[in-house]
Each structure stands twice: as structure tokens, then as C-alpha cells.
């Protein structure tokens, strides 16, 4: 259980760091959002003080000392109040995020499962059959890994979407003809619209897993316990999965955090290109319309989601590696 507590402690610190960064960035870099907005609006005459006042109230800007603001900020968060969105005024930020979140969560989790499953599976076989045709394909993953998400999304959209017309060009489902609900039409439409965004994420994301798993397999296969499993006359599949791959996957799991970071970045780019109504798309819109409360709320929620995913993976790691359970 020491392991669990240590991890919980770590993520508490990470969460606090994310909250604090979110609080500090706007205040350290530019003073406050009201100044930025006013500097954009400013034409010939200075804005009337009432206008500034109204904006300050809306953004919760105050002239209190930083630490007073900090605690006020934390108190607000504790009550779940993320402020009011400017773009979707008067909708609270929480509501806007609540509408975007399910799309992103669905897309990311499905794409992530496919990426990890396929990457680890193929990497395992490539490493096991060193020198086979599959292993020979490994160098091409280098190219896949270096493709920018944004560009890949554009290409897929251009060739598979616009060019061949196989897939719809944007949105999460056919807004004009299908109503949201648990109907075959709706689900089919969602899958169809989600296919290209998911494909973008899988293609760019898979290379890292494939290569990492393949190289760890090669290293692991020289271990005595794999040779011994062969000496025991176990079936090759059993040796590959339970002896080689079970051990080879562990270092890849620890690299999950970094991979997830890239994945979330790709998610934002993908959502923008496909106008997919998730949090990444919302984030960019918030940036475009200087919707600071929404921007900060989104960053916060993305951070929390990523931290939660990492925590889950750490728990999983504890399950598949008996050594960390005890040692803690």
C-alpha cells in the first residue's frame, strides 16, 4: 500500500502545481486579461472606467495582493466554480466544458486503446521474430513518428475526406440529419465522423509504442528467464507473451506519461482540423476570442484528466509488476 500512498502524494503535488501554474501564467506574463482585452479594443480614446470595471467583475480581476487572489482562486475552484465564459455568455465555463468533454474523452480513449494495443502487439511480434518482414518495417516507423499531427490530419482530410469522399469532413456527427440519442443512426454517424480523427492519432502515435516495445523485446529475449522458458519446453506463444512481453512492456508503461502528453497535443491539433467539438477545439476558440475564463478552465480540466490517466496507469503498473507492490 506504500506504493499507492506515494503515488497519491505525487499526484496531489502535481495537481497543486497545475492549479498554481494556471493561476500564475496570466498574472505573471501580462498583468491581467482585462488589460489585454482593452489593449485590443483600444482605438483613439481610452475606454470609459465603467467598461473596465464591468470587465474586471466579469473576469474576477481584483487589485488585492497576489496571495489573497490565490486563496480566493483556490476557494472558487473548491466550490467547482470556474467562472463565466465570454464567448458563450452567460453560460458558466463548467457547462461549456461539460459539453465538450465527452467528445474528447471518447475520441482520445478509443484512439489510445487502439494505438497502445496495436503498437505493443506488433512491437512484440516484430521483436520476437527478429529479422522477419514485420521487423524490417520498423525503420519506417521513424518517419511516422516525425509526422506532425496537424499535417497528417490535413492530408487525411484532403485525400480520404475531400478527395475520395469516404469520410465526412468535419463535426462529430451529422448535425443536420441525425438527432442525438441512442439510435443506430446516431452511433453510426458518430463512428463515421470519428474515424479520420482517430486514424490521425493512431498513425502518429503508434510509432513510439511499436519501436519501444520492439527494442525492449529484443533486450528481454536475451534474459535467462526467457531462455529458461524455452528450455522448459513451453509453447512459443506462452514464452513470447508471459515471459518476454510481460517484462518488455514494463519500461514502456513508465513512458506512458510522455506519450500521453504528445497524444493530448495531437488531440488539440486534430480537433481543430476536423472541427471536432471537443475541449481542444474549444480551447482554440477560446484563444481566438480572448475568452480567458474558458481558456483557464479548459487547461485545468485537461490537466486533471491527464493526471487522472497517469494515476490509473501507475495503479495498473503496480498490478503487473509485483516488485513495486512490496518495495513501495
Amino acid at each position: 500500500m506504500a506504493y499507492l500512498w506515494r503515488k497519491l502524494g505525487f499526484y496531489a503535488v502535481a495537481l497543486w502545481a497545475a492549479l498554481t501554474i494556471n493561476f500564475l501564467i496570466p498574472r505573471l506574463i501580462r498583468g491581467n486579461p482585462v488589460d489585454i482585452i482593452l489593449s485590443r479594443f483600444q482605438t483613439r480614446q481610452p475606454p470609459p472606467p465603467e467598461f473596465r470595471k464591468a470587465l474586471e467583475v466579469m473576469f474576477g480581476v481584483s487589485h488585492d495582493p497576489l496571495w489573497v487572489q490565490y486563496f480566493a482562486y483556490l476557494r472558487q475552484l473548491a466550490t467547482g466554480n470556474l467562472g463565466t465564459s465570454v464567448t458563450y455568455y452567460p453560460a458558466p465555463v463548467g457547462t461549456v466544458i461539460g459539453q465538450a468533454m465527452p467528445w474528447t474523452l471518447g475520441l482520445v480513449s478509443i484512439a489510445l486503446l487502439i494505438t497502445v494495443g496495436l503498437g505493443v502487439g506488433l512491437g512484440m511480434v516484430a521483436g520476437w521474430r527478429r529479422g522477419s518482414w514485420l521487423d524490417g518495417l520498423i525503420p519506417t516507423t521513424t518517419f511516422l513518428a516525425a509526422i506532425p499531427y496537424f499535417w497528417l490530419a490535413l492530408l487525411l482530410l484532403f485525400f480520404l475526406g475531400a478527395g475520395l469522399g469516404w469520410f465526412p469532413l468535419n463535426g462529430a456527427y451529422d448535425y443536420a440529419h441525425v438527432r442525438m440519442g441512442f439510435t443506430g443512426d446516431f452511433i453510426g454517424s458518430v463512428l463515421c465522423h470519428g474515424a479520420l480523427p482517430a486514424l490521425t492519432l493512431v498513425i502518429s502515435g503508434i510509432a513510439g509504442w511499436l519501436l519501444g516495445m520492439r527494442n525492449m523485446m529484443v533486450s528481454t529475449m536475451a534474459e535467462d528467464y526467457v531462455v529458461m522458458a524455452q528450455a522448459k519446453g513451453l509453447r512459443p506463444r506462452r514464452v513470447m507473451v508471459a515471459y518476454a512481453a510481460r517484462n518488455a512492456v514494463l519500461p514502456n508503461v513508465t513512458g506512458f506519461a510522455i506519450m500521453l502528453g504528445f497524444f493530448v497535443g495531437g488531440q488539440v491539433a486534430t480537433e481543430v482540423v476536423f472541427s471536432y467539438p471537443g475541449v481542444g477545439f474549444a480551447l482554440l476558440q477560446a484563444v481566438g476570442s480572448a475568452d480567458y475564463p474558458l481558456m483557464q478552465g479548459l487547461f485545468l480540466i485537461i490537466s486533471v484528466a491527464v493526471l487522472a490517466a497517469n494515476f490509473l496507469v501507475d495503479l495498473l503498473y503496480g498490478l503487473i509488476d509485483p516488485r513495486v507492490r512490496k518495495a513501495g
Binding site: 501554474i21 502528453g261 488539440v268 481542444g280 480551447l283 483557464q296 491527464v306
Partner: peptide, 14 residues
């Protein structure tokens, strides 16, 4: 470790 788990692109966008 904290820097590794905080999502970077959204942070950079901000």
C-alpha cells in the same frame, strides 16, 4: 516528474 505529467501543448497554447 511533475513537469512530465502536466500536458504541455495546452500549457504552451496558454
Amino acid at each position: 516528474n511533475v513537469a512530465l505529467v502536466i500536458p504541455t501543448l495546452p500549457l504552451l497554447i496558454l
